[in-house]
Design a protein around this nucleic acid. Structure first.
Lengths: 197, 197
DNA sequence: CCCATGTGAGACATTCATGTCTCATTAAAG
DNA sequence: CTTTAATGAGACATGAATGTCTCACATGGG
């Protein structure tokens, strides 16, 4: 709990501020800088000293999200073992960041015209690679593209985070619900060939 | 192209305005009233004459979303035939409204404290009922709750709508991708019992 | 003890979306 | 043609969030 970052004094815990901001903005994406500051237990002035403005704050949250995602990807060792187990580990590792991801996922629309952080591309590629590997080994169906499976994973993570936040799904079921639904659809072989309605 | 609604003149097509607003707000949820007006091809003044304010506009979009959802639910005849076919029809019917749904789904967080439109509860119940029926008939797994399957459907619809909007998924694949992933996970029987990682 | 640094509180100007208003124009109905 | 109604363009005030500033206070280091 000492020697934080730069040099010396009881500086505001930047990570804690970002945590609070993520938690608040996930529920209320239009929250004021003042509300964000209050949620973090600091004053608006101090918040402004650490993040030049709302945009900078969101960018910092994006950087945090990317950082946590990549850490989760590393920890999940996506290259090892069966692809389905890799997906299990991925969801397990990424779960703590799900709420933040849900916020960034919907906020990304703001970056439409502007430059998109290349970190997301890297993450997308790494996740898509798992699904592609699973397809190559025959574990996963080949009629659902890796890009769509990646997108669907994001969507399910966001849905799960919101459902948990609103009490519609128990927090303990988060991992199971997401992985079971995603893998059940991604895994090959089905009871019967599905006909078009 | 005549005798619109109330009485007489070339009144702005309210439905068209809502369409444009939905399309724009889906991509840029923070769009200005002025941008919404421009997108609809009308002036801000006229937009204001039809919708008292931004809040009223969002409420109208919500009402439209609910209306289209319930129409889709009716058209899908969820009570008839196998539950999996009912889900097929549901996604097929609800697809045109997916973008609007995606917007409302993320915007709903704004209504946190306030009163939630009871229409959503009705819709949630009707969709959950399909999954519950499928579970009762043995078509669907029972370890994924109807509430979660409903939530997941919303998430996949939103993901699909965004993925299509950004060109990551072909529009023609929308229905297939969503239904296959959702049903593949919701359908009972799997190749092998899944073990916990 | 004194100094330096980070913080909280509040004042202040600025920007921007919003909401309201007026007025001229256009189009349909009589 | 005349009347009525709806629209488009623009001016204007309002309110909210933002960004910047100053000053007092607290805490830790020397």
């Amino acid at each position: 709990m000492s020697h934080m970052g730069y040099r010396c004094l009881m500086a505001v815990d930047r990570a804690h501020v970002l945590r609070s901001a993520a938690a608040l903005l996930t529920r209320k994406s239009t929250a004021t800088m003042d509300e964000v500051a209050k949620a973090a237990g600091i004053s608006r002035a101090t918040l402004h000293r650490h993040f030049a403005g709302r945009d900078a704050l969101v960018r910092a949250l994006e950087a945090l999200g990317i950082e946590e995602c990549e850490a989760a990807l590393d920890a999940a060792r996506l290259d090892e073992g069966p692809a389905r187990d890799a997906v299990h580990r991925l969801v397990r590792e990424i779960e703590p960041a799900a709420a933040l991801l849900a916020f960034l996922y919907t906020e990304n629309q703001l970056f439409e015209g502007e430059s998109q952080n290349p970190g997301w591309t890297r993450i997308d590629d790494r996740i898509a690679a798992v699904f592609r590997r699973g397809q190559a080994t025959g574990e996963f169906r080949i009629d659902l593209t890796p890009a769509w499976l990646t997108e669907a994973l994001y969507g399910l993570l966001a849905s799960g985070a919101w459902a948990v936040a609103e009490g519609r799904v128990a927090r303990n079921d988060f991992h199971y619900m997401i992985v079971e639904l995603l893998l059940g659809g991604a895994l090959r072989y089905h009871t019967e060939p599905r006909e078009e309605s």
